[in-house]
Design a protein around this nucleic acid. Sequence first.
DNA 1: GCCAACGTTGGC
DNA 2: GCCAACGTTGGC
Length: 150
Amino acid sequence: MAYWLMKSEPDTFSIDDLRKLGVAGWDGVRNYQARNFMRDGMKKGDKVFFYHSSCPEPGIVGIATVAREAYPDPTAFDSKSPYYDPKSDPQKPIWMGVDVKFVRRFKRVISLEELKQEPRLDGFTLLRRGNRLSVMPVSEEHWNAVLELE
DNA sequence: GCCAACGTTGGC
DNA sequence: GCCAACGTTGGC
């Protein structure tokens, strides 16, 4: 089993939205590297840190699990979707997403600031300068170090 | 294949 | 709203 981190802007889709839905499609990813992680890496049962970005307190807010492995992102074919991509042909889809299932919400936000201060998280992809990946792998060591901050 | 211009992400 | 750091696009 592998560990991952997925970013979402809480104004668009928050951990509470996922809690309400139970299971949700992680759609709208339009970056090849992030797509490749979902398509080639994510397996059912993998664990996922849910990260809130572009908000007053960016940080890791809870845990989800992969409920369904990668399949074509339907929003890419929907001309009314903000994620519509006319280059993605349903016969040969460019963009993929997974389904994620709510596991739990942390009692408090483990903030980006706090993550940066934890020596055991040196080298964590999330903290790399200029990192903009919205889906990334997390090592077991980093996963455990984050959990111990809760 | 190079690279300038442009667009996006995301913290601050 | 600013801007650093990328990724993408398109002319050549």
